[in-house]
Simulated assay, not measured.
Amino acid sequence: MAPDIGVEGEHDDIVYPSAIPFVLVHLACFGAIWSGITWQAIAICVTLYWLRIFAIGAGYHRYFSHRAYSTSRVFQFILAFLSQSTAQKSVLWWAAKHRHHHLHSDTEHDVHSPRHTGFLYSHVGWVFARRHDTYDPSKVADLARYPELRWLHKFELLPAIILALLCFLAAGWPGLIVGFFWSTVLVYHATFCINSLAHVSGSKRYVTGDDSRNNWLLAVFTMGEGWHNNHHAFQSSVRQGFKWWEIDPTYYILRALSWTGLVWGLRSPPEQVLRNEQRLGGAVINRAAEQLVAHFNSERIALVIASALHGPELSALRESLTRAHDRTTEVLGSLHLPHMPSREELSAKAKAMFARTKSLEEIVDRAYELLLASVGTRLAASD
Rank of each mutant, 00 (worst) to 15 (best):
A144S: 14
S212D: 00
V127H: 06
T208V: 02
R150C: 12
F119Y: 08
G125H: 04
R213Y: 03
I194D: 01
R131F: 13
W227K: 01
W173S: 13
G175Q: 02
D211G: 06
H109E: 13
A144C: 09
A219Y: 01
K154R: 13
H123E: 10
P147Y: 05
F168G: 10
A190C: 13
A198H: 05
Y188I: 06
C167T: 10
R213K: 15
V187F: 01
P159S: 10
N214T: 09
I161F: 14
R213I: 03
A170L: 12
R145T: 10
I162Q: 12
V220L: 14
V111Y: 12
D142M: 08
L217N: 06
H153K: 12
L169D: 07
A164E: 02
W216L: 12
V127G: 05
L217Y: 09
Y206R: 04
A171R: 09
E225A: 01
P114M: 01
N215R: 02
H109W: 15
P174L: 13
D110M: 00
F128C: 05
L186H: 10
P114E: 02
V124L: 12
A160F: 04
L186D: 07
G209W: 00
F119L: 06
A141H: 15
A129S: 11
V178T: 02
E156R: 15
L217F: 15
A198I: 07
V124E: 09
W173T: 13
D142G: 05
L158K: 11
A129H: 14
H228L: 00
V207I: 10
H228G: 01
C193F: 10
F128V: 04
S201E: 11
H109Y: 09
S203D: 14
D210E: 02
L149R: 04
R213S: 01
V111I: 08
A171Y: 06
N214F: 07
V185E: 05
P147D: 07
G118H: 07
L149K: 07
K139W: 08
N195I: 01
F168S: 12
A129Q: 12
L149M: 09
M223S: 05
P159E: 08
P147S: 09
R130H: 15
R150S: 15
S203Q: 11
D133K: 14
H228E: 02
I177M: 04
S203E: 14
A171G: 11
V200L: 07
A219F: 05
V200C: 07
S113T: 01
H132N: 14
V124R: 05
R205P: 09
V185M: 03
I162V: 15
T191K: 04
S196Y: 03
T117R: 00
L143N: 06
P147L: 07
